[in-house]
Amino acid sequence: MTQRKHDSASPGGDRIREDTTRRLERAMGSLGTAAMARMDERLPWFRALSAEDRSWVGLVAQAGIAAFVEWFQHADEEGRPTPNIEFFGTAPRELKRSISLQQTVDIVRVVVEVVDERVDELAAPGGEAQLEHAVLRYTRDVAFAAAQVYAREAEVRGAWDARLEALIVDALVRGQVDDGLHSWAAALGWTSSPVVVLAGRAPDDKPEAVIDRLRDKGRRSGIDVLAGVQGDRLIVIVGGVDSASAATRQLLSRFGPGPVVIGPEVPDLHTAARSARAAVAGLRAARAWPDAPRPVFADDLLAERALDGDEDARAQLVENVYVPLAGTPLLDTLATYLEQGTSLEATARLLFVHPNTVRYRLKKITELTGYQPTEGRSAFALQVAVILGRLAEADPRDRP
């Protein structure tokens, strides 16, 4: 911008300001048109906007020019009136989401350039310096105003997003997966998959601080997270990761003391209620396994969950263990082996078979169920599964 000697304090300064104001009012339409053309020429992101958003940007630019003319009309060097920045509010919230603060500054810069290039034409004779100085003051104040507007929008959006996040976490824990959950997830832009849910104790701090630290850790680790504090429990939804255990280890320090349980992996957020249910049930039952690793998978706690009344765990054990063995010699072999304290010889004697036959059957049981009868925790899970399977097959008439 060319520097000229400032002349607003001259005897004819007020008259010059009035003449310049009239010139500016007559030129507002052409200034807005020129600003739009310059943005289209200079700003690639502006050309990429939809026609509707481009129209809104034009209205904001035009409103900014009009606000400047009104401000200039009453401005003087002593009073330093505050610019009216309400023209930023003419844009809908959707536009503020799609245009960044830096891009808003680009718009202001283009408008300033257009006005500056026409100072000699717009200013009344002798008012060039007066207009230049006013433009400098006004654009500086408007730049600060734009930052304030975006800061307020970010604060409001952050509070709203936090509320949606809490609603999603609560809905998944309750198993209330409906159209509301889909809408909330869409509003947050959540598209990550696959998904796992983590459950652990919340640290002793304000919930807002816990969630903020967790989000920060997720961003730095490249992990998509949604989280909620429910009483003393911290629920975290993790999306778009190749390894649930690796992602959990990244977030582990943000949980309070005690177990952290990883729910089973599911395809997307809409099916995450199953993972949330398993993780929460696992957290409740984890006290029954004091030496459990941290983190621990919910499926590694099936036996404890089943004993704690988790119907999903009971059904899973029956389906994955009892059903494949039922009606075959493998079930009798497993039951006898467990009842005999995992003694191979005692099992063989009771079944009237060779010990190698028992070994072969135990190997087949491992292949069919994924549990190894000769290993302590696996044997425990197998025994619980056998008991649950027998109870499931009991004659209803035998029940009280």
Rank of each mutant, 00 (worst) to 15 (best):
V238M: 08
A27S: 15
G79R: 15
M36I: 11
A244I: 07
W45Q: 10
L351E: 01
R140I: 00
E208A: 12
P194Y: 07
T33M: 12
R152A: 12
P44D: 11
V318M: 04
V261H: 10
V135G: 07
A186Y: 03
A278Q: 11
F46N: 10
P259E: 11
D106C: 05
V110K: 01
R249I: 01
R277W: 05
G29N: 12
G32E: 04
R305I: 01
V225Q: 04
R361F: 02
I107C: 08
G228D: 12
V323L: 14
R80L: 11
G258V: 01
S100K: 04
A145F: 07
E117Y: 01
P83S: 09
L31S: 04
Y360L: 09
R349D: 15
D120E: 14
R359Y: 08
T90L: 13
R15C: 00
R23N: 14
E339P: 00
E41C: 03
V280I: 14
Y138V: 04
L24P: 06
G231C: 03
T248I: 08
S221P: 05
A37E: 11
T342Q: 15
V229F: 10
D120Q: 12
V318S: 10
A143R: 14
G175S: 09
R137M: 09
V112P: 00
R15D: 10
A34I: 02
V60Y: 03
S378A: 15
P257H: 06
M1L: 12
A209V: 14
D120S: 09
R80K: 12
A247T: 07
E367D: 14
G180Q: 13
V241M: 06
A145N: 08
R277T: 11
A171C: 05
P324G: 06
E121D: 08
T248H: 05
T191G: 03
E18H: 08
T342R: 15
R140A: 14
A143Y: 03
A306K: 06
L269M: 04
E25L: 15
L344D: 06
F352Y: 01
V69M: 02
F68G: 12
H354R: 12
R254Q: 15
T104G: 14
A63P: 00
L302E: 04
E265H: 00
T139Q: 13
A199W: 00
P396K: 09
P81S: 06
V260L: 04
